[in-house]
Design a protein around this nucleic acid. Structure first.
Lengths: 139, 139
DNA sequence: CTGACACATTAGAACAGTTCAAAGATTGGA
DNA sequence: TCCAATCTTTGAACTGTTCTAATGTGTCAG
């Protein structure tokens, strides 16, 4: 039982077969899947599941605060089930692989705050993962 | 003459009427326009300009390194002409207004680097701008 | 247990933002 | 002036996401 499924059950969320396979697709703390990848994984277990349900469910989980939505450089949104532990991301510019990293939140000095009420910070480190670095140098 | 146009001229870039109005639409260091906004602005000065040319030109400027592409939470890409001064962004979660802020780059500790070759960092501070904070509290 | 209502799911159409392709227009150099 | 290279245009195509309307399913009162 994943923490996500457990949390959902505690909330009394109606857990249908479709929702279960979608939540199971998001299992793990270091997963950053796009909607089509969630759809693929869910369909392996329940072939009748529809893409619309995947989108409905993901959006619902995001607005419940059970998933975080990450905007990737390509058009696709990604979903991160690790909402318990504050963290940032390290992304490979070539293959798009995304890892969680634990770093200090950067501070926004008061004189840069422009009167905003601050709600959060996201940091993305961009780089090249070992695999892609290897294939670049060999290319 | 904006720095952007000046830089382009120095590169010997063919400066047609269309490209000029597009570059002029990006004038200023604190502008973060989406493609459709650039299109609007450009069309005010040169009504025949086409959306495809706006996209072509923006993409070309990005690959020349004269504009930075920013991925916003909504689907649209934004373009930032301030490539000279390293900076991060402060974004209003309600209206989407985006401001430049100068803050220290966060560090990625070596033990979090996962063997990546680091290329850059982007930080986005999310908050509510004074205008939106006012209309929330009055709502 | 049954019926009814609320809610969930589905397929496909619709939509937004972006890219692509082919044809036409413009530019600069010989 | 003419040619070749490059730029621009229109409109179609494509991707990711949302919407709609019809159908299916779970739950709970009676």
């Amino acid at each position: 039982m994943t923490p996500l499924l457990e949390r959902l059950r505690h909330r009394g969320w109606r857990l249908t077969a479709q929702r279960r396979v979608i939540a199971e697709a998001m299992a793990g703390d270091h997963v950053h899947l796009a909607a089509d990848e969630v759809f693929e994984r869910a369909r392996e277990r329940l072939p009748e599941v529809s893409l619309a349900t995947v989108y409905n469910t993901l959006n619902e989980l995001v607005s419940m605060g059970e998933l975080a939505e990450i905007t990737h450089t390509d058009g696709r949104k990604r979903y991160d089930p690790n909402v318990a532990e504050p963290h940032h991301h390290l992304v490979c510019v070539d293959c798009g692989e995304m890892l969680d990293v634990i770093t200090e939140d950067p501070r926004l000095p008061t004189d840069q705050q422009h009167g905003f009420e601050l709600l959060g910070v996201e940091t993305t480190f961009r780089g090249r993962c070992p695999d892609c670095a290897a294939s670049v140098s060999s290319a």
